[in-house]
Design a protein around this nucleic acid. Structure first.
Lengths: 275, 275
DNA sequence: GGAGCGCTGTATCGTATGTTACGTATTTTG
DNA sequence: CAAAATACGTAACATACGATACAGCGCTCC
């Protein structure tokens, strides 16, 4: 079973003429970066002519050079996606059905935060902490609980936090309360919901700043969003995982809380005394 | 100090016009592969025109698109050389408000699962998959969203799944529907809610099997619970983290789904066709 | 409410890139 | 050793890619 181009080369390098063999060797030596460059660069690095490079990739079974490059890119992308699979089969003792799921989830989180800069989070937190406007939160079929979770916390440390629940017509009526200074936090992962898209578009038209929590394939709402948080959702299960987004949400809650510490603390004390 | 293009983007994304920001977001979401493809593909993925992509890379300080791609390739090559330096986000200098939170959360999950045997999870999953009885879910102030999340998933793969919402008197009235064969999933972390305790006790008296999600200090409801899942909740924040419990919930959802695969798949197909 | 600026997409252009044809060199085989 | 086949590079070609000019539009700021 041959899965990577490197293996394919190792398999056929024996039956190659001298020039193509040099091409193969240089590719293996700097795998796979040389293959992503132009034919001219590749040929120069290998010390052969361009046609030799093309004959080489043709011998590997590719129709043309771009196809060969795409294949290399896909391979690279797959590698980058799952850091766990980088080290061939992690030890994973126990071998139960739990470990893979947990490992994948932990990877998702690391990966999600790797693509998320402190600055970006700080920006969003600052926007959420800005008390001049209102904050609305809404989610999709499975992600609405995340919106609720976030709303429950934010509502404690600042006023004017609203979770949009119920039917679509209900939200729409709330649009009238939304303006430039307000923020709309939307959770939307596959399969993206049309109702949310429609709502986001209308809110965007009213100048509402949208913060979008979505998966790595980006909900179409990204088009209207001021800030986009792309979380990894793939796990070995029938369902997608929202755990990474959940952790991002918690992180944001923490950041906002810290920013509003002074006012927030006072507010919390007041609330406690109201019980 | 900016070393990677991702940082560069994070740094300037705030001062970008809408179109270019969309380009930036799609690049970050699928970093860095999209950037290695052609301008046409990149622009299509981002939903903008080619010139916008070019203006985007120009704003990042590159003379032209190939130069931008070379830079990405160099970065990738360096990454592949030393997997240790894979960190896209530098060790979070100064503030470091994010990393500690994430690290603590990851630790919490590992700890939580360390104290959780596969068998225990399997038992709970089996109980939840047992379709002879009904399943009720409820949570506390901050954890109710977790109950909703779990309910949303379970309700798809099996009938008779109910999330208990609204006021306390509402739940109490549902007690009459509960019996020995039924399961009640409760989420309760500090500060434990009296209302939930009262409810759990009454349900217990009726012979309902209780599955409790709580923190490591154990809600008093543990006294009535058949199964107790104790998750770590401590993070460097003003709030406790429910992330570990969230992941356990997802894991359980996955396990139950697997057990009900045959019936569940049929059910899901039926549901899809109802749309 | 009007003028100015900045952003974005369409259409066009030049060029770098991959591709192919062909002639020469090198090896193989009878 | 001769003749044929294969391999390799040079040079011309076509395509597709990135770059640019320009016009329409929305937005902000007087």
């Amino acid at each position: 079973m041959i899965s990577s181009i490197a293996e394919l080369i190792a398999d056929r390098i024996g039956s190659m003429p001298a020039g193509e063999r040099r091409a193969a060797q240089t590719l293996i030596a700097n795998y796979p970066m040389i293959g992503l460059k132009t034919v001219a660069e590749f040929s120069a690095a290998a010390g052969v002519s361009s046609p030799t490079i093309l004959r080489f990739v043709a011998r590997l079974g590719f129709q043309n050079y771009p196809e060969f490059q795409s294949s290399l890119q896909d391979e690279l992308a797959a590698q980058l996606q799952s850091p766990a699979t980088r080290t061939l089969n992690p030890p994973s003792p126990g071998g139960g059905t739990v470990s893979p799921m947990l490992e994948a989830t932990l990877d998702n989180m690391r990966e999600t935060f790797r693509h998320l800069s402190d600055k970006q989070l700080a920006d969003i937190a600052a926007r959420l902490a800005d008390r001049r406007g209102k904050t609305f939160l809404i989610g999709g079929r499975f992600t609405d609980p995340l919106a609720r979770y976030m709303a429950a916390h934010l509502a404690i440390i600042q006023p004017d936090v609203f979770h949009l629940a119920g039917q679509e017509s209900m939200w729409r009526d709330r649009l009238i309360d939304m303006g430039k200074r307000d923020v709309l936090v939307i959770f939307d992962i596959r399969r993206y919901q049309d109702s949310l898209l429609r709502f986001a578009e209308k809110a965007h038209q009213r100048g509402v700043q949208i913060v979008l929590f979505t998966d790595q394939w980006l909900s179409p709402i990204a088009r209207f969003a001021r800030h986009v948080i792309a979380g990894r959702t793939a796990v070995p299960s029938a369902w997608d995982s929202s755990a990474a987004l959940f952790v991002v949400a918690e992180t944001l809650i923490g950041a906002v809380t810290r920013q509003l510490e002074a006012e927030g603390a006072k507010r919390i004390r007041e609330m406690e005394s109201l019980r």
